[in-house]
Amino acid sequence: MTVEPHRLALQRAPAARETRHRVATWLRANMVLLLIVPTLVFLGCFLVAPYLNMLVMSFRNPSTTSVFAPGYTVANYGKALTDPYYLGVLAQTIEFGIVTTAICATIGYPVAYHLARTRSRFKGLLYVGILSPLLVGVVVRCYGWIILLANNGLINNGVKKLGLFPHGLMLMYNAFGVGVGLVHVFLPFMILPILSSIQSIDPALEEAAQSLGASRTRVMLRVVIPLSLPGIQAGSILVFVLTISAYVIPILLGALKIKIMPTLVIQLLIDAFLWPFGAALAFILAASGAAVVYIFIRVTGRLMKGLT
């Protein structure tokens, strides 16, 4: 029944009809693509557009009287990449990211392994424990650490009372304090990917290695860790990227005593009002982070050659 008008239309305007028909077929076949339109619009408005705006900003001429002066320049990048001060902060940021990642991996791996292999009734509780840092807001969590780590905080009062360190310990406003805060909250991002990759390793492989004469340590080094590299890789990338872009925790626990890029960028934008230069620094940080991640993927990728 419905075929009839169809055919009539074809007779009337064959070419137009054919085009419309093709579009309709394509739409019907790819209707599912419509589902991503809201996401694309959202990302376009709130991610891509601001980034493009920032990118343009980073090439603007600086001005003392307005946000930027007319004309374009690459001087912002030139200054950032030649001034030893900014390069030093960049290096320190990357180093800080690498160290935090390494600490998270070292602490997180045994936890992930245990959780992957345990048959305990309290497994669910362990999961909650691991996710607990994420259940508390960042500011509250930091004030918790401040109560513990401050110069007149719980720990310092304790050790002073016990007479261990009469002058107290410097636990905050340095890399240690910031590191503690970051490791605490980023640990789940390391543990969960490693956990899932260990869960996918057949426990019989460990037994096979043992039966062939490998000690527990050798089993870990030769079988379990190599096979869980994908998880270590994913977790490390997450923690590294989050660390080098962290702002709130370094501000609250480091109070600008520790120089890293995000705090510096915000300082330039808000305090010094140097928007073009701040934007350039932000892009340099992003590019450097991406470069480190790229190198890391290449290196670990070589180690995982047999896995895929």
């Binding site: 019989a204 096979a208 290695a209 096979l227 047999g306 896995l307």
Partner: peptide
Amino acid sequence: FQNYALFPH
């Protein structure tokens, strides 16, 4: 082993 447990890597 039943599933051979060869090291996949």
